[in-house]
Nucleic acid binder design. Structure first.
Length: 481
DNA sequence: TGAAATGTTGGGGCG
DNA sequence: ACGCCCCAACATTTC
């Protein structure tokens, strides 16, 4: 039998790779037992390629903040933890909760198992302002429309939204036999991500620096300018949030104090509403675990998607012939990220112009985005497709020419990622096929050679999409009657 | 968190 | 001076 004085506590890090405002860490540290911090690569849970790059760097950063005492493992978490409790005198296992269907199932089983072994298990909310069960309607069912969800649950002074917890000091950490970070083999072998480090610096300190920069430079004018692809008014916090390098509570409380100066500040309020969209996505995924695979609205099950891999690949590679679409897809490939407005444009283009299943787009995004997040990605794709909650109406078809003109008015963003068009006057930048042969040859562009002709005519695609969506309308009428 | 088609209005050119 | 047409400019409706 172990002595009580030998006991230690296992702190299982997951999507909470930070020290500040980390309830599980706070609990472990207050327990006064030595902490064995662990991270497990669960090979049964799919992580996108860009996310792996981020994860490696974020873990590296966390490990440094933990005096290089983070213990890495690969395999089945239950087996790994089981071995740890057999080899060590473990008082408790603690973690912060995750909300993806596969993770919920896994964690529930582990919790049951550990309890059967008489090991104390404590879990916490570190990742959401309100957990899904705590943001339901009076009849206990979940919200399907964003605005009431937001208004009823996310008043700025809602006492149910926890204030951030300070970072504990004097951590007593135990290093045990485990893998090195490089043995996790997270860095993808193909070096397409070689430039990511120019755009992104993972880790808690960097997350806070990005947030500070946003408050100082991006927040004023945010409501309108967040849509401008050529400006830097978006927060770019999404990957930091996904991996838990910063908590939504830290963001919430900071903006809350900002609002004390002017509670009606439209920019700060709009920024908070975007944070609540994240909560809404998690809520939807919680109550509809099939969200990543199945249409939330069943009448979309009969939608006549086109299966055309050649077209899909052209979209993925940024070769559609619509410069704003191609710029976005190339930004994604080169940087692991895409501006939010442009995400909507390329998604609408795939689903409505090309009539390709939103799941194909979601899969590509999930693999390419450093901020890939099952809840946000699934909910947002369904929103664009029209099959989701509070979705974009089927008839809202973005015109990729007008969207380019509106949200990249000088073409700076587009020309950055589609440099072959850098000399094309703004008048034709978003519709190069309208430029004269003469003009095109002056700037050394031959359409179809140096830059593709449009993959499909906008007006034809628009008509075709409206007709396809008619079938959804008809099947809805059948479902209703 | 649209875009296009259609409708309305009002000023100016012109017979 | 008047009515008619044209057509921006704006508003409304429809997809």
């Amino acid at each position: 039998m172990h002595n009580k004085s030998d006991q230690s506590i296992i702190l299982w890090f997951r999507n909470d790779l930070r020290l500040a405002d980390n309830p599980a860490l706070d609990y472990a540290s207050s327990s006064l037992f030595p902490i064995i911090p662990i991270y497990i690569i669960d090979e049964n849970i799919y992580v996108g390629e860009s996310s792996k790059w981020w994860l490696h760097n974020s873990l590296d950063s966390l490990n440094k903040s933990l005096d290089s005492k983070l213990n890495f493992f690969i395999g089945n978490p239950q087996e790994i933890i089981d071995q740890l409790i057999r080899e060590n005198n473990i008082y408790a296992v603690v973690w912060n909760r995750c909300y993806e269907p596969a993770t919920i199932k896994r964690d529930t089983e582990i919790k049951t198992y550990l309890k059967s072994k008489n090991i104390l298990v404590e879990t916490f909310n570190s990742n959401l302002l309100l957990e899904p069960q705590n943001a339901v309607k009076e009849d206990q069912t979940n919200y399907k429309v964003f605005t009431p969800f937001y208004k009823k649950n996310y008043a700025i002074d809602n006492p149910k939204i926890r204030l951030p917890i300070a970072k504990p000091d004097n951590l007593n950490l135990l290093k045990i036999e485990s893998l090195t970070i490089n043995e996790l083999s997270l860095i993808p072998k193909v070096n397409w991500h070689k430039n990511f480090k120019k755009f992104w610096q993972p880790g808690e300190d960097n997350a806070n620096a990005v947030f500070n920069k946003f408050i100082a430079k991006g927040l004023i004018g945010y409501k309108e300018l967040r849509n401008r692809a050529d400006l830097e008014n978006t927060s770019r916090l999404s990957p930091h949030l996904h991996f838990g390098e910063i908590s939504p509570n830290i963001i919430w409380s900071r903006i809350r104090s900002y609002l004390e100066k002017n509670i009606y500040d439209v920019d700060a309020n709009h920024f908070l509403s975007e944070l609540v969209w994240r909560e809404f996505s998690y809520n939807l995924l919680w109550f509809f675990p099939d969200l990543p695979e199945k249409n939330l609205q069943k009448n979309f099950d009969n939608f006549p998607w086109r299966k055309d891999n050649t077209i899909l690949i052209k979209w993925q590679k940024g070769q559609t012939g619509y410069p704003i679409v191609d710029a976005g897809m190339r930004e994604l490939w080169q940087t692991g990220f895409m501006h939010n407005r442009v995400r909507m444009i390329v998604a609408s283009f795939l689903v409505k112009h090309l009539l390709i299943d939103w799941r194909c787009g979601a899969e590509w995004f999930y693999d390419c985005l450093v901020d890939a997040d099952l809840a946000n990605n699934s909910a947002s794709w369904q929103w664009v497709a029209g099959s989701g909650a509070d979705a974009a109406p089927y008839f809202r078809i973005f015109n990729p020419i007008l969207q380019g003109q509106k949200f990249d008015p000088e073409g700076i963003y587009t020309k950055k990622f589609v440099p072959e068009l850098k000399d094309l006057p703004i008048k034709y930048l978003f519709s190069p096929w309208l430029a004269s042969e003469d003009l095109l040859s002056k700037i050394n562009i031959k359409l179809g050679v140096d830059y593709p002709r449009p993959i499909i005519d906008h007006n034809i695609a628009r008509q075709r999409a409206l007709e396809a969506y008619d079938e959804v309308k008809i099947s809805r009428e059948i479902n209703v009657s």
